[in-house]
């Protein structure tokens, strides 16, 4: 069976400067792929290409075995994306935001789905408050609820743990596990080797625009993964912490 999303030889240049080069990646249902890498390694660019928001300069991306059409609107509706920016209307309440996006995503019973997600992410009692007054962590929880609203087949997370407190982190790890078990394909960008090891089934190390290592989390321990990550960064000439 073809992977849900397949990237082959994907590269991207900005102003003729390559920020990503020769990336091969398969995202399959029921699997979580972690991407480890330092700042500027091309992780977010890769996430935008996989979300079909950015066209690659080189290589191909296919969804369910078919090349992505020139107008990718329909395919995009099957993706849930959590990025650095909220992508929410801050003057709206959580309920208003979810109702609006629910209508665009054609969610059948948006009211009950919104209630379910807001309860899951501990935001139900803030449902009528404007998002503008939310803390970074609360906004991040709402971003997660919005990404899951339409029950997408593919979930892309770009540093989703940013701003979350310890209970929030635990909730997100549980959500990642729950969604993977429900058959979603998950792509997770993180700086944190321990989170990558805990949440992913496999992963890549991206450094200086290229894939430097591939790993499966059931084959190596977290310490080995940390050592592998450090080696990959040194090999790519990136500074290590």
């Amino acid at each position: 069976m073809a992977p849900l999303l397949l990237a082959e030889g994907v590269g991207k240049d900005f102003d003729e400067r390559p920020v990503l080069d020769g990336v091969d990646l398969a995202l399959e249902s029921g699997r979580t792929v972690a991407v480890l890498g330092p700042n500027g390694s091309g992780k977010t660019t890769l996430a935008h290409i996989l979300a079909l928001l950015l066209r690659p300069t080189r290589g191909h991306v296919s969804f369910e075995g078919r090349a992505v059409p020139r107008d990718p609107s329909v395919v995009r509706r099957r993706i849930g994306f959590v990025s650095h920016q909220p992508g929410l209307y801050l003057d709206f309440s959580p309920l208003e935001n979810l109702a609006f996006f629910g209508r665009l995503y054609r969610v059948a019973d948006v009211a009950s789905r919104s209630k379910e997600l807001l309860e899951r992410f501990g935001l139900w009692r803030f449902r009528e408050e404007p998002v503008r007054i939310f803390s970074r962590g609360m906004t991040q929880r709402l971003i997660l609820a919005r990404a899951l609203l339409h029950d997408p087949a593919l979930l892309l997370f770009d540093e989703p743990f940013t701003g979350l407190d310890t209970p929030g982190e635990r909730l997100l790890l549980e959500t990642l596990d729950l969604e993977r078990r429900a058959g979603k394909a998950i792509f997770l960008i993180t700086h944190d080797v321990r989170i990558a090891h805990a949440a992913a089934t496999e992963g890549i190390v991206l450094a200086a625009s290229r894939v430097r290592r591939r790993f499966k989390t059931d084959e190596i321990g977290v310490d080995t993964l940390e050592a592998m990550y450090r080696d990959a960064l040194q090999e790519a000439g990136c500074a290590t912490a």
Binding site: S73, F81, S83, L88, Y89, L104
Partner: peptide, 18 residues
């Protein structure tokens, strides 16, 4: 500007708005 602010435009594109 409403859509550019806070990256709402990206959310609309992901929601399949042509």
């Amino acid at each position: 500007e409403i859509e550019r602010r806070d990256d709402c435009l990206k959310s609309l594109r992901l929601a399949g708005v042509s």
